[in-house]
Nucleic acid binder design. Structure first.
Length: 267
DNA sequence: GGTAATGTTAGACT
DNA sequence: TAGTCTAACATTAC
């Protein structure tokens, strides 16, 4: 589920639950998801330490550790989440897709779930060791309209959906929210940047900010967003355009992903 | 059993 | 050269 709003909420969840507790044990059920360090070293480095702070960059979650300079970095891939459990719950609520467990001194546990195993975990001194983090574009919610327009200008030849999806151009937007942004901005996902008017570009910017903010505020995974006026709740459902029920949504491969859009409302 | 799925990346193609 | 497309990764759900 994780795009920017989802990872932002994982961050809040993590900060609310897992900070400042001594780690007493770590278990891993998919050791190849831990990158560039053996599980043994990973475990040795972290046991006895505690998490100090957490922040987000694009779709990455970065955890500061109190006693060492290394940072713990999570990427959730296409499917992933956290689950924090009290000792009495951890016996019964064992999800099938737990890949990593941090056990704390007080008996609480933080579970990292990753159904499709496309997620990754790193422990690095320097975030630049992670290729994509090093090349990551700006955070959309920190971006002024002016800078956004400049970015579009630098990518004139590309397709708008491809640009929104490209983490090196703008961080954190994935397939679902790129579709939602283009739907609410009424822009066809096949459009090339150079064909967009200034007004259309500003529409995209405004909707990007609005949608990301609202999705964060909703504090739920995007699948549960049930706002009828949003595309999200129709792409998995009736495939009707929220602006006009007579319009049938289309699904097409654009920029390598399945894009859902209304061929009539999105010009 | 086939197909598609929220992400990323390498390599081929145009 | 630059942009786009495809397959691969691992696994599940429909």
């Amino acid at each position: 589920m994780p795009e920017l709003p989802d990872v932002e909420n994982f961050k809040r969840y993590f900060k609310k639950t897992a900070l400042n507790k001594k780690i007493v044990n770590i278990e891993c059920f998919a050791k190849d998801l831990i990158k560039r360090i053996s599980f043994k070293d990973f475990k040795n480095k972290l046991i006895g330490k505690s998490f100090k702070d957490a922040w987000r960059r694009g779709k990455f979650l970065i955890i500061e550790i109190k006693q060492i300079p290394e940072k713990l970095v999570f990427h959730f891939g296409m499917t992933g989440s956290f689950y924090y459990l009290k000792p009495e719950e951890s016996k019964t609520k064992r999800d099938r897709f737990i890949r990593l467990i941090f056990k704390f001194e007080d008996g609480d546990e933080l579970h990292w779930l990753n159904l499709r195993k496309l997620g990754r975990v790193y422990l690095v001194k320097d975030l630049k060791e992670i290729e994509l983090l090093k090349e990551m574009g700006p955070e959309p919610l920190m971006l002024s309209e002016k800078s956004f327009l400049k970015i579009l200008d630098e990518n004139k030849e590309k397709n708008i959906k491809a640009v929104l999806l490209d983490q090196r151009i703008i961080a954190g937007i994935g397939n679902i929210y790129s579709d939602e942004i283009l739907f609410q901005a009424k822009i066809n996902p096949r459009r090339e940047i150079k064909s967009l008017s200034l007004k259309e570009k500003i529409q995209i910017y405004k909707n990007m900010i609005k949608i990301l903010k609202r999705a964060i505020e909703a504090q739920i995974p995007y699948q549960q967003i049930s706002k009828k006026s949003w595309l999200i709740s129709h792409r998995y459902g009736d495939m009707r355009c929220p602006l006009n029920k007579k319009h049938k949504l289309k699904k097409q491969t654009i920029a390598g992903r399945s894009a859902y859009f209304c061929p009539i409302c999105q010009k």
